[in-house]
Every structure is written in C-alpha cells, then in structure tokens.
Design a binder for these strands. Sequence first.
RNA 1: UGGGCUAUAGCCAAGUGGUAAGGCAACGGAUUUUGAUUCCGUCAUGCGCAGGUUCGAAUCCUGCUAGCCCAGCCA
Length: 549
Amino acid sequence: MSETNNTSSNFIKNIIKEDIATGKHDEIVTRFPPEPNGYLHIGHAKSIVLNFEIADEFGGKTNLRFDDTNPLKEDKEYVDSIKDDIEWLGYEWDGLKFASDYFEEMYDRAVLLIKKGLAYVEDMSQEEIREYRGTLKEPGKESPSRSRSVEENLDLFERMKNGEFGNGEKVLRAKIDMSSPNINMRDPVIYRISHATHHNTGDKWCIYPMYSFAHPLEDAIEGVTHSICTLEFEDQRPLYNWVVENCEMEAKPQQIEFARLNLTNTVMSKRKLKQFVDENFVDGWDDPRMPTISGFRRRGFTPESIKLFCREIGVAKSDNTVDVRMLEHFIREDLKLKAPRTMSVLHPLKVVITNYPEGEVEWLDADINPENEEMGTRKIPFSREIYIEKSDFMENPPKKYFRLFPGNEVRLKHAYFIKCNDVIKDENGEVVEIHCTYDPETKSGTGFTGRKVKGTLHWVEATNAKEAEFRLYDSLILDEKSGDDFLEQVNPKSLEVANGFVEPNMTEAKGNDKFQFFRHGYFNVDPKDTTEDKLVFNRIVELKSSFKL
RNA sequence: UGGGCUAUAGCCAAGUGGUAAGGCAACGGAUUUUGAUUCCGUCAUGCGCAGGUUCGAAUCCUGCUAGCCCAGCCA
C-alpha cells in the first residue's frame, strides 16, 4: 500500500515518529474498535484509514476489535456488516478480536482492584449514585458502600457474577476521588449487572464491564501502542491511564484523541441515521443518500475515492466541517479514467431527422473513454428518429444558449450536425417533437471543418434505445445547522426519479458497474433494484458545470 | 477561576523562532466533438484579540475573547 505515503503529516504521526525515534516502541500496534450496534459511516472511514495506514506506514499491525460490552445494543448483524465494509475499503486486519474474548481476564483484573482496595461494590440506586456524584462545579460525596471491607467486596462481586442480584441492584465502582474536578474520576462504575444474552458469550455472563474499564484493558491485552479515539474521550484519559496502571497491565497503551469528521449537508450521528431508517425517510442503511459506507457503496462511490478523501482532509484536534464537494471531487477524480463514457437521455424529447432515409440504421464508432484510449471503441446506432434531452432544446433561448433552438445548428456527439426547422406541440402548447435536418458532410471522424457549432448534444437512437430508470440524488439535509429538529431540515427533493433511455449495449451492464453518462455525470448500476428487464442507475455525482440558465 | 480541549483564507489543513505548504471551493483566461477534463493565472503584508520578550514571533510569555466536550448502570 505505497499509495499511503503521499499525504502530509499530522500530529499523531509526529507522536509515533517520535516514539520510534526514542525507542519507546519497536513496533506500532493500532486498532479499530467499533461497537457492533449500527452501520459504519464515512466518519468511521476516517478512523479506519487513519489506524490502518498509520500502522502500515510504520510497519505495524492493526486489529479489528469489536467493543461488545453492552449486549442490550449489540448484534451479530452489525458485526458482519462492519467486517464487510472494512474489507470493501480494502483493509486486512491482523487480529480479529472481541472485547468479549477478554471478559474472564477483565473479571480477574476487577478482582485485583478489589483486593488492592481500589474497587468496591455499590448498593445505592442509580439515582442516588447520580446525586452523590455532585455537579460540574461542586464536588461529590462519598458513598457509604465505599468503606466496605475487601472480603465483603470480593464476596459481593462474586455473587454479582453468579447472578444473585437483579439488574441495577449492585454495581462495581473504582475507588478514586469523589472530589475530583474531572467527573470521570468520581468513583466511576466499572461493572454493571445485565441479565441479557450476549451475541458472543450467550448467557455465560450477567455482569458486563463498562467502556471506561474495558477499553484500556483491551488495548493493553492486545499490546496496542497508540489507542486513537475521538475528542469526547479526552476527559477519560486520566481514567484510562488509571485502569492500565492499577490493573498492573504490562503494556502501557497511549490514548490519543482527534476530531471526528463532520460533512456539510450531512448528519453523522447513529441516532439520527437510525431515525431516517426507522421512519422511512430512506430505503435502509444502504440507501444511496445515506453517509454510511454501505450507502456510498450503493450510490457508486469507490473505496479508493473514499480513501483519497480521508487522507486529504487531514487529522487534527479542531472541530471541523468538511465541504461535501471535496468528497465529490475525489469520486470524479477516481472515475475519470476508469468509467466508460456512454450516452443516456434522462428526460427524452423526440427528434425526427426529416432528410434521413426511413428505415435505415447506421452504426457509428464511438470511443469509450477519450482520456483513456486503451478502453477502445463501441458501436452506436443512428437513424431517422432519436431522443435528446428536454433541457437541450428551447424555443426562445436566452443569450449564450449553445444548444438546440429553431434555426440553430448543433453537433450530435459521434454523429452529425443537425439543424432545427420545426417544433411540434401538443394541445397544451408543450413541445413534444422537434424536426431537424442533418448534413451528411459533417459526420464525426471525417475531419469536417467547413463550419463550427457552439454546442454538442448527447442523444440515443429511438428504435434501439433501452428504457432505464435514473435515480437523481441530492443531499438529504438542506442545511447543516440542525439541532434536535433536524427532521425539518430534510430535503424533500433528495430523490428524483427519471425514466429515459440508454444505448442498446447497456443491457450487458451488471450491478455496481459505473459509467459516465455524457454531460450528466457518473452513474452506478443499482445492485439491488436492477433486474433483467429494468436497468436502474444511481447518480453518483454530477459533472461540474459552469452553465447557468 | 469546576475540569478538559480548540482557534491559520469561504471549507479542510501544514507549519514546533528565520519571514505563511497543499487540497476543496471561487474567479479570470487558453484548449476542447462533454458548458466536463486538461493547462495557465488570481485568491492570508496575514495566523481569534491585546500587550510583552527577541535582530526576527503563527511559533515563546502574560492577559483576554469565542467555540466544543464532560454530571449513562452508553460507547
């Protein structure tokens, strides 16, 4: 993966370089630690790219570790989707781990803490614990349970494990400092009782470790050298270090926090995305409008484009909102040389070429990608009747309109010049057909230079055209400044469905094939809804355009 | 004075005492059988603000200001 080394440095790489230079570590170990309670999104991709490529760059390892310490929220379905998404991005993890693999050891470490007088079983209710915790500005109070003997704590904790108590009756707390200015240090809960079936360990356990206790242990057990997480965990770092230290872990992983990704016109929280799914604003977690990895995949984004984007946005500690147009830039960039060019008409308008012989069809040569000649050529039919784009004709055009209008001549891509002579309208005055004449002298490829035209139009020959559905996407969210009422910011026009035509050879297209439709943009064959008789195309991104009507 | 963190262009971001990289966006112009691509050019006398140290400060010091995070038996 040598493509990873062309990006500028960031503060995390600088820390690692320093750690290698000083001999603190010989080998770098990172991990990507998702909780299997939802689908991965583009923000996770930033973390995946960071963790995997940093280890790769410095010759280390990266584990995929599921942080499955809360059976109420987690599910194997998510484990599978997460693995799929990471593989699709093109990364291979070194170890496949589960926090639940370490439940036994975590339990032992908790017992160690109790023996050292650094943890105790709490009798108080959740409400009481909260009251005793104090507030942001006032210190907390010590619980009566805090002074329990080691023996009693040991006994109680074992009975917790054995299922003698119901949910919420007891918790295990670390004994740290109830008056700490950092609330995380005010005797945090490290084990709770939850009589629930775990996707991995079944009913073996009814007590589960909390994140703040489990995570540092998991990292230390795996020998993770740099535990990279997001900014909201910064306040937990003292607790993280406390756990590693007092549980007498051999490895001393270092937690480093970076700012999570925000995108304009996008919501990124799992809660909100889940709401879109549950309330049917979208078609599911992989709806092409969703910022999930699976949504981008179905939309037609390539792994490479997402990785290029993640490398380019950088890694820092300041809150940020990246312009989604930057992501769009990288998919255009990636597909430019890869995607075959083809012509499609999304909103058809029939054109009759009155001086072209009836019943005759000629097959024209067309290059598949003018920027990548190795892709070769294709044949496209041409005849007396074709379809052009509705927006490529105006009866009364404004200045600088280069397309078709009465009396004007334009080029049909790969074919001939045509000139508009007549406009046919229906009873409502709507244009339904255009009559043109063509000039045989102007055939593409013959080197005709007799006269010039300003516009070149795409088109599809009518009798051989294949019907297709086009899904034209716009952002799901109109304005990124959205609070709890973000549903009010939902774009009612995030999806427009058009029914039109594609070239006849497109019948061979398969799910996830990507094309550039001339003058429209890049499209992906929808892998779910495309059938033998109906092609469905998802618009990945439009071509840039300086044209304004 | 609860604690933690952040501040460099419209948006990201490098920069770690030697005179503001790069990308996106935008705007000019050339080429163009995609109003695309490509190419060329423009875009911070300035680094949240105010002082100070220094021959020299985005970088060091002092004091402010603004924004984000923290009171789950979630992660």
